Amino acid sequence: MKYTVGVAMNPLDQLAGIAKTAEECGFSSIALPDSLFFMETQAADYPYTPDGSRMWNAETPWVDPLIAAAAMGAVTEKIEFYTQVLKLGSRNPVLLARQVGSVAALTNNRFGFGVGIGWAPEEFEWCGAPYKRRGARVDEMIDVLKLILGGGMVEYHGEFFDFDRLQMSPAPTKPVPFYVGGHTEVALKRAARVGDGWTSAMIKFDDLVGVIARLRELRAEYGRENEPFEIQTVCIDRFGKDGYAELEDAGVTDIITVPWVFDGIGFDAPLEAKQDSMRKFAEQYVN
């Protein structure tokens, strides 16, 4: 079992210290969230809370996860980083390939790319991307990203994106793993078809078991059942040794945790308190 530290909504000046301590404690990864901006009014419900409200406000700190991965990678040597998840729909895949390839190079292949579509129409429209047909557009974006990141001279001629032969150097010396997020049927199909893993938002255990079973069915349909596949999860009702053992038995490979939450410490707490929580968690579960 892998254990990953989630750093959503943390002050930016703590990220380097959290990364160094997580590495010292034996955590395998840092999970980096993505939020472009806070719109005063939202046109759609946030899909992962009961009432559709957001768990953050206009003052909550966010940093671009790709920049954060490069910065945290510069002060560590072994720990890995992945976006959880970057919202593809509002981005341009050619520009994004440049960024992802750069992070992979700067971290010496310690970067995984967790991707989703994005839930907010404003993030699409205000960044110049269409909200309509966003799923089909994101499918094509993944194709473009994998093609460019694979290295060499490539071209692409699709419905949404079109370019003649180009090359971005240096290409990653190892394939960048793609972890696909989302709980809907179409998201699970996307993960099973093109992903190296599936990554969850907050989810209850019984729902998670159903998702994992469905992913197994879909991967078999796509002929990918024997390929390595990560299950990264934020399970909100299984904790401790027994709970984590249940998750492992269910097929989870990577538990995303926020250790200081278990100690009743808020996101704006001092770095030292969070480091103590990571050390305590690691002594109990990681090592």
Rank of each mutant, 00 (worst) to 15 (best):
I30L: 12
V154Y: 10
R238D: 11
G128D: 01
P172F: 09
V252N: 04
T41R: 13
E125G: 01
L36K: 08
G116T: 03
V100T: 11
V75I: 01
G158C: 05
S277R: 00
V180H: 09
D242K: 14
S200M: 09
E159I: 06
E227F: 07
A213D: 13
E40Q: 15
D196M: 05
A69V: 07
F81R: 05
A31Y: 07
F38M: 10
G243P: 08
K20P: 00
A19Y: 00
A68Y: 08
L188S: 05
N108M: 04
F205N: 05
K189F: 03
Q99H: 11
T184D: 13
Y3A: 01
K20D: 00
P33M: 11
V261P: 01
G26C: 02
K20H: 01
R219A: 01
T199C: 15
K132D: 11
T257K: 08
G150H: 11
G266R: 07
G128C: 01
F229Y: 10
P11I: 00
F239M: 15
P130V: 02
F27S: 00
M39E: 13
T41Y: 12
G101E: 10
F37W: 14
M9V: 11
A71S: 11
G197W: 05
I203R: 08
F113Y: 04
T49W: 08
I30R: 04
G52N: 07
L86K: 07
A74C: 00
T184F: 14
M141G: 02
L208F: 06
P130E: 04
V75D: 00
G118Y: 06
S90Q: 15
G26P: 00
E24F: 02
T253S: 14
R110W: 01
A104I: 10
R165Y: 15
Q167E: 14
G150A: 08
G151M: 09
F111Y: 07
V176T: 05
Q275R: 13
K274P: 02
P47E: 05
L32G: 07
R165K: 14
S53H: 12
A213H: 15
A70G: 11
V138I: 03
S102W: 11
A282D: 00
A220W: 06
Y82S: 14
D249P: 05
Y48Q: 12
T41A: 11
V234D: 12
D164F: 12
S53R: 14
S35L: 15
I67R: 09
A71H: 09
V252M: 07
V115F: 03
E123C: 01
V258C: 10
S28G: 10
I142W: 03
E159M: 06
T173N: 14
I265P: 04
V7T: 09
S169L: 14
L88T: 04
A68L: 11
K78Y: 03
P61D: 03
K78A: 02
A120H: 10
G210C: 03
R165M: 15
L145C: 07
N57M: 05
F161K: 08
D254T: 13
S102C: 14
P175W: 09
G150Q: 08
F163S: 03
G266Y: 03
F178C: 05
Q14V: 01
Q14H: 04
V209Q: 11
V94R: 06
F163I: 06
D139N: 15
D242H: 14
A250W: 08
P270H: 06
Y244L: 04
P270K: 01
E24Q: 13
F113S: 04
D13E: 10
A220G: 13
A31C: 13
R133M: 05
E246H: 08
E283Y: 00
A220D: 12
W126V: 09
